[in-house]
């Protein structure tokens, strides 16, 4: 078994427990876990503030209506769950640039922000195209 640092669990154990969470979610609420649809809904909610007519006319936003639903709350829960876990394990750490990035490209925020932003655009477009 791999070594586990303080405040952390063995990845096999944490992963298997996450599998149990997904089983109970399907059994109890009929919901399979997913996250990326919530980004579509959030994008629609934001865009609606500026161009409500345009949003209302887009097929993809009709299919994924700008509404807070089970999955949207699931995604918010991930943030809160990670916050709780990191505080309880004393591993919460405010960090602007990840260690591996800093070792290679330095600690300037700009380049990391630019690459992360473009990566986010490309990754989400791909995720939606693959319907993942």
């Amino acid at each position: 078994m791999s070594t586990t640092a303080k405040g952390h669990w063995n990845p096999y154990l944490a992963g298997a427990l996450a599998g149990l969470v997904s089983i109970f979610s399907v059994w109890g609420a009929g919901k399979f876990l997913g996250a990326s649809t919530s980004f579509v809904k959030s994008a629609a909610m934001l865009e609606k503030l500026f161009a409500p007519d345009h949003v209302a006319g887009l097929d993809y936003f009709i299919k994924n209506a700008p509404r807070i639903d089970w999955q949207w709350m699931f995604v918010v829960g991930i943030l809160l769950g990670a916050l709780l876990a990191s505080l309880s394990g004393r591993t919460f750490k405010v960090q602007a640039v990840p260690d591996m990035w800093r070792a290679r490209y330095g600690e300037t925020v700009g380049p990391r922000a630019a690459v992360a932003f473009i990566g986010g655009v490309v990754a989400m477009f791909g995720a939606r195209l693959a319907d993942g």
Binding site: H8, W9, A14, G15, L17, A18, V21, S22, F24, S25, A29, K31, L33, M73, F74, V75, V76, G77, I78, L79, L80, G81, A82, L83, L84, A85, S86, G89, T91
Partner: peptide
Amino acid sequence: TGLAFGFLLQK
């Protein structure tokens, strides 16, 4: 569900 899942991802 998200709370539990996020907790485990962090751990």
